[in-house]
């Protein structure tokens, strides 16, 4: 518990800088989207499964302006924030998850299999890293300066595909940016029980630069990462960026077996509470706007007919 207290004391000491309006709006759009999903599940209006990014929304929001439209982004099972940060399209995504008309992948892919232009998510851990290396190889030749970004979790580092990809990316000098959302837990297994050594150590083993950030301040994160990401583009070298982040909600829905103090620890790190405290008036307005927008999106999607799909031959 002393660790938690020291952590909290440190948080209080680090003041957040003022976020741009569009950043605050985007952060809150993702937060309300995810909260609404859990509500819809509880109300029996969604079936199947979903993985919310509650607590981690700032990661893709911070990265968004560092990316160009020709970059290719690979997302994972916990990818709603990644998608919304890139396309600000809650209607297409919710329709996809609900299986309604206008779904971005005709309801076939669902929550964790989305493809749109230079954005793809898949449901198998680690699988996307070699694929991202292949896309990076394509980009290096056909669109110099563009990069492939792959979001992974700390749990993903159990998969051998990760190391095969890092090895090839380093050997072949591929513009691959690996973003690790290290939230300290893989479904129900704490990192301490599933990851030996460190992610920094693993990146170092391949001679790949690694940068770890503990901040939730989108401006601070951008300032830290801007020059590093630029190097991926100009020098065609991979980079591993590790976000020390916190998963606020369950792995999926209603399957959080963590002890209350661990969840409380994650809550204390939540960007939402910290931005609200730092900028109460602006935050309240933006929060209300985002909540209203998502409510309208949910109503709109619910009113749509089921999506149709022509199974391809």
């Amino acid at each position: 518990m002393t660790v938690v207290d020291a952590d909290t004391a440190q948080l209080g000491a680090t003041a957040l800088s003022a976020p741009a309006d569009e950043d605050l709006d985007l952060l809150l759009l993702i937060r309300h989207f995810e909260l609404r999903l859990l509500d819809l599940f509880t109300a029996g209006q969604l079936h199947g499964t979903t993985h919310t990014c509650l607590g981690q929304e700032y990661v893709p929001v911070a990265l968004q302006p560092l990316l160009s439209t020709v970059d290719f982004v690979f997302s994972n099972h916990r990818g709603h924030g990644h998608y919304l940060a890139r396309y600000s399209d809650p209607v297409g995504l919710l329709a996809e998850i609900m299986g309604r008309a206008g779904a971005v992948c005709h309801g076939v892919g669902g929550s964790q299999h989305i493809l749109r232009d230079g954005y793809l998510s898949t449901g198998v851990q680690g699988q996307s890293l070699p694929v991202a290396a292949g896309v990076a190889m394509h980009l290096r030749r056909s669109r110099p300066g563009a990069l492939a970004l792959a979001y992974v979790g700390d749990g993903t580092w159990g998969e051998g595909a990760v190391y095969e990809a890092l090895n090839m990316a380093a050997l072949w000098r591929l513009p691959l940016l690996v973003v690790v959302e290290h939230n300290g837990i893989a479904q129900s297994t704490p990192t301490s029980a599933q990851l030996a050594g460190t992610i920094a150590g693993r990146a170092a083993a391949f001679g790949i630069p690694h940068h770890r950030t503990e901040s939730v301040d989108v401006n601070v994160i951008r300032a830290e990462l801007g020059p590093l990401v630029a190097r991926v583009r100009t020098e065609c070298v991979p980079l591993v960026v590790e976000f020390a982040t916190h998963r606020l909600g369950p792995h999926s829905k209603g399957d959080d077996s963590r002890p209350p103090e661990v969840i409380e620890h994650a809550r204390r790190h939540d960007w939402y509470a910290r931005y609200r405290e730092a900028f109460p008036e602006r935050f309240a307005e933006a929060d209300a706007r985002a909540a209203a927008r998502i409510a309208a999106v949910a109503d709109e999607c619910a009113a749509r007919p089921p999506v149709t799909w022509q199974a391809s031959a």
């Binding site: 699988q127 070699p130 694929v131 292949g134 990076a136 394509h138 090839m168």
Partner: peptide, 21 residues
Amino acid sequence: IGTPLSEGGIVGVAGGLALAG
């Protein structure tokens, strides 16, 4: 391209190339 001993990785890279056109 001569590759490391990484069959899964190689087919993944090839899949990425194919995905990109």
